[in-house]
């Protein structure tokens, strides 16, 4: 049976308390290092902060999931092992992992703590998911954002673990965990260092005519008109000219956010156990607004009523939203 758990982001202890108070069933977070995919400046938790956060969440009946969802470079696994040991000591309820070596270490050394397979593992077929379940005891898979609801329903029938899907936030259709675009320009890796478009390499330059250029490592990756909505400075959502398109176009993806508010009943019916809200890098304001809206929606649906979905478009990237591949593979 689908529990329709609400899995919510927290980049700081204050955001975690905000998420819990707004009705999160579980909150996911990470340490202040490369062990997680939101290794951003000034973000994340010290071990002491995580200890206090776990106590706060547990006192209010919420779980804490620790993201260890990056890939250790060869021969440098100690940081990930230490993070797992620290998380276990502090009483986290599950680890979110992508790397098989990290999964194996936790399965051997902390077998009583649940393992969730991160979207960064890009496991999108029953065969791939079953491999992680059978070899590392994975209890839940976070599916990549490339599957339709009928496909999710079919996968659910063929795997022995729970399914978690993103329902709101960043919409990245790259093969997750494999993207090297940031690495190509900055030398830092989304998957190894946890930094997509590191802030130290980002610059915004405003021209006298009101246009704003978004630059990464000195390369202009987009230019917004004076009244045009902006997006994140990521290469995958940059606008480029090409031989066949001299006007500048979104060659990979568009600045747009996922919002599956209206698909929640179908996702529950398809057997999705948990709904994930993206945005550990976002503010308490975002966490409060989005978690509250989805808490209300899920509760209404569970009670057999039609959910009154709050308008969250103001919080979306580029102030545009999509149901992406969940609705159709022809979404662009």
């Amino acid at each position: 049976m689908s529990l329709a758990e609400l899995i919510c982001p927290a980049g700081t202890p204050a955001a975690l308390r905000t998420a819990v108070d707004a009705g999160a069933d579980a909150v996911y977070c990470g340490f202040q290092d490369a062990t997680n995919a939101r290794n951003f400046p000034g973000l994340n938790f010290t071990p002491q902060e995580l200890a206090e956060a776990v106590a706060y969440a547990h006192a209010k009946g919420a779980k804490v999931l620790l993201a260890l969802n990056t890939y250790p470079p060869a021969g440098k696994v100690d940081l990930w092992r230490q993070a797992a040991d620290t998380g276990a000591r502090l009483g986290v309820d599950a680890f979110i992992v992508a790397d098989m070596g990290v999964a194996e270490y936790i399965a051997r050394n902390h077998p009583d703590i649940r393992l969730h397979l991160s979207v960064q593992a890009a496991a999108s077929s029953p065969e791939a998911i079953r491999y992680y379940c059978e070899n590392f005891g994975v209890k839940r898979v976070v599916l990549p954002r490339i599957l339709t609801i009928p496909e999710i329903r079919q996968i659910r029938k063929e795997i022995p673990c729970e399914i978690e899907t993103f329902i709101f936030g960043n919409h990245g259709l790259m093969v997750e965990g494999r993207c090297s675009l940031t690495n190509y320009l900055t030398g830092q890796s989304t998957n190894l260092d946890g930094v997509c478009s590191p802030a130290s390499d980002v610059e915004y330059v405003r021209a006298e005519d009101g246009t704003m250029a978004s630059k990464l490592a000195g390369f202009t990756i987009d230019r917004f008109g004076p009244d045009e909505k902006a997006g994140y400075p990521t290469i995958c959502k940059g606008r480029y000219t090409a031989a066949h398109r001299s006007d500048g176009y979104y060659a990979f993806e568009e600045p747009i956010s996922l919002n599956l508010a209206r698909l929640l009943p179908e996702l529950i019916d398809a057997g999705v156990h948990a709904f994930k809200i993206e945005g550990r890098q976002r503010s308490k304001s975002y966490v409060r607004a989005v978690v509250s809206a989805f808490r209300n929606a899920v509760d209404e649906i569970r009670a057999g009523r039609t959910a009154d979905i709050a308008n969250l478009v103001a919080l979306t990237e580029g102030q545009k939203q999509t149901q992406g591949a969940f609705a159709t593979k022809k979404w662009r």
């Binding site: 204050a14 905000t18 704003m212 917004f224 009244d227 045009e228 909505k229 902006a230 997006g231 994140y232 600045p255 890098q281 976002r282 503010s283 308490k284 304001s285 975002y286 409060r288 607004a289 103001a314 919080l315 979306t316 990237e317 580029g318 102030q319």
Partner: peptide, 13 residues
């Protein structure tokens, strides 16, 4: 005061 989201304010220009 976290009454507004910085990313959203940036997106809106």
């Amino acid at each position: 005061d976290a009454e507004q989201d910085g990313d959203a304010a940036f997106f809106s220009r």
